[in-house]
Simulated assay, not measured.
Amino acid sequence: MDVRVLFFARSRELAGTSEATLALEAGSTTAALLPRLMEQYPWLAELGGSFVLSLNQEYLAPGEEQVLKAGDEVAVIPPISGG
């Protein structure tokens, strides 16, 4: 199944793209998606895991795991600083 991944702010810079499509096995979870992201975009390691995911525009709590479905949209959102 294909899942659409969106990259925002620093994650977009590190990934070198604003979005990608990842093919995952049916029944994969958001936890299974993370190693795939790190494998395909190793520069994301610079964020040190300091990012949150959203699934279909809903933030996931740290450590929360959701089953993904074909066509789902996952966003990688790094910490935002302001001033």
Rank of each mutant, 00 (worst) to 15 (best):
M1G: 12
D2M: 14
D2L: 13
V3I: 09
V3S: 00
V3E: 00
R4Y: 09
R4G: 07
V5Y: 00
V5C: 04
V5K: 02
V5G: 00
V5A: 05
L6S: 09
F7N: 01
F8I: 06
F8G: 02
A9C: 15
A9R: 07
R10G: 05
R12E: 06
R12L: 08
R12C: 04
E13V: 06
L14D: 02
A15M: 06
A15F: 07
G16A: 08
G16F: 12
G16V: 05
T17G: 04
T17A: 07
T17P: 02
T17S: 11
S18W: 15
E19T: 11
E19L: 12
A20D: 13
T21A: 14
L22H: 01
G27T: 03
G27Y: 05
S28F: 07
S28G: 11
T29E: 12
T29A: 06
T29K: 12
T30Y: 04
T30P: 01
L33D: 01
L33A: 04
L33G: 01
L33H: 03
L34N: 10
L34P: 05
P35V: 07
R36Y: 12
R36F: 11
R36M: 10
L37I: 09
L37P: 00
L37F: 03
M38Y: 15
M38G: 12
E39H: 09
E39S: 09
E39Q: 11
Q40I: 13
Q40S: 06
Q40K: 09
Y41K: 02
P42T: 09
P42H: 12
P42D: 09
P42F: 08
P42G: 10
W43K: 14
W43T: 13
L44M: 05
A45F: 11
E46Y: 07
L47D: 04
G48E: 08
S50N: 14
S50V: 08
F51L: 15
F51V: 07
F51W: 13
V52G: 13
V52R: 14
L53C: 00
S54C: 14
S54P: 05
S54R: 10
L55F: 04
N56Q: 07
N56V: 01
Q57T: 13
Q57F: 15
Q57L: 14
E58I: 08
E58N: 07
E58P: 00
E58F: 02
Y59K: 06
Y59S: 03
A61W: 08
P62K: 02
G63S: 07
G63W: 03
E64S: 08
E64D: 12
E64W: 12
E64L: 07
E65C: 10
Q66A: 15
Q66W: 03
Q66S: 13
L68M: 04
K69N: 14
A70V: 03
A70Y: 06
A70E: 11
A70I: 02
G71F: 04
G71P: 01
G71V: 05
G71Q: 05
D72A: 09
D72Q: 11
D72I: 04
V74M: 12
V74C: 12
A75V: 02
I77C: 11
I80L: 15
S81C: 13
G82R: 10
G82V: 06
G83W: 06
G83H: 10
G83N: 12
